[in-house]
Write a protein that binds this DNA or RNA. Structure first.
Ligand SMILES: [Mn+2]
Ligand SMILES: [Mn+2]
Ligand SMILES: [Mn+2]
Ligand SMILES: [Mn+2]
Lengths: 220, 220
DNA sequence: AATATTTTTTAGATTAATCTAAATTGAGCT
DNA sequence: AGCTCAATTTAGATTAATCTAAAAAATATT
């Protein structure tokens, strides 16, 4: 009946990598995303294809079927709702919740998820600023651009991150950066694109690569 | 490092069946508890023994080691805390949470569980009246008392029987009584201690001797 | 177009968890 | 002590998920 954790993780990886809903994803990309071997990915793609959760032809990559999309989006919904719970209700930090949600997302119970959603007040975004799909799988993308694209003098509110691995988020914590904070770009280094920011009266120095993984919404 | 879900479920089953902390448990008892084959149990007992989580000698049953006890009790703690969350916070019913907690108990994060415990207000019992072990694994045995000791007006949930011979159980079936049912004592006969119960809207008459062999846990 | 490189698949193993059927062991009963 | 039978273990398979190494296909480079 249900899918294994492994199958679910593959579907989620394909959704994440396919950007556009029906984008095609390569074997190696999935292998990298899931830190597994390409051979294992090929095996799993065959199985998911047999179950009609993906479209797959050898050497030509995979893409989610209608049903696969539905499942993957539901996993995203569960993952992000649990993250909200962990941060909002239990007071955990945004850098420690992803790993736990990676397990919680596999818990099987529609009733549970709908009640959790209700308990949390139907949140629209997770602690990393990612949108939470509704029951029908729909979610609003929001105008978010990398901090690195702001020009000198411009301000932006931090609304998300492109990466949610622990070390990266811990680094942001160390710098005092978090969702909702407003930063103004003071200077941008011509050579390495490093930034000098002003945030809540303090100066913050940030490398270009880090700034590229922080998503902001420009503010007046 | 960590144990598999299967290994954890076996440890929990052994704890449940061993009543007294270091009681010995038979292969068949575990097989029945986990609804699996005796052959599978033997395989797993060998593995758990190799990992020194249990003491096991062929044909002689198994008992938890110090470490096995620690792990099993921690699983019980997690299972029951999650059940409290599902009922208390999400408003689910006590009959639908066990299955979900059976999955949630395997989530690996000490920090998560300590925060959940704190969020719930350090509950001492789960929705079924079972005691929740504390961080050190200690817990108070649950109050299970004969139905005959309830006073008029008091309610209790049926959690077991003192006798399990066929005629007695058939009698309970005839009365509609079964594990999990909640009964309220309406009247107690002064002379022969017979009871008039209210259960799910129906009146049930019970003799004093029968009531003495039914174990209940008082409920609010 | 031919060759080199990268990507992907296949072949062949391994580990974990399970099963059924057959063999073994131990416990209770003459 | 020997027999019988239930409990338990072993033998031999199966399914899922994974791996490494080798082969094949697609892509890129001369
Ligand atoms: Mn996952
Ligand atoms: Mn997230
Ligand atoms: Mn379980
Ligand atoms: Mn319970």
């Amino acid at each position: 009946m249900g899918l294994s954790y492994a199958e679910e993780n593959y579907l989620k990886a394909i959704l994440k990598l396919s950007g556009s809903p029906d984008g095609t994803v390569s074997t190696n990309a999935i292998a990298a995303q899931l830190d597994t071997s390409a051979a294992s990915v090929t095996d799993m793609l065959k199985k998911l294809s047999d179950k009609e959760l993906i479209t797959y032809q050898r050497y030509k990559g995979a893409s989610l079927s209608e049903e696969g999309q539905r499942v993957a989006t539901s996993l995203l919904r569960k993952h992000r709702l649990w993250e909200v719970f962990l941060v909002q209700s239990l007071g955990m930090t945004w850098d420690e919740v992803h790993e736990i949600a990676e397990e919680l997302e596999h818990i099987q119970s529609d009733r549970l998820i709908e009640r959790l959603d209700n308990f949390l007040g139907h949140p629209k975004f997770d602690p990393h600023g990612d949108p939470i799909p509704n029951k029908q799988g729909r979610y609003t993308l929001r105008a978010q651009i990398p901090l690195s694209t702001l020009v000198s003098g411009q301000s932006g509110m931090i609304i998300g991150v492109k990466e949610d691995d622990s070390p990266f988020l811990k680094h942001l914590n160390d710098k005092g950066l978090s969702i909702g904070k407003i930063v103004r770009v003071l200077t941008i280094d011509e050579y390495d694109h490093g930034l000098l920011l002003r945030m809540e009266g303090d100066d913050v120095v940030l490398s270009g690569q880090v700034a590229d993984h922080i998503l902001v919404k420009p503010v007046a």
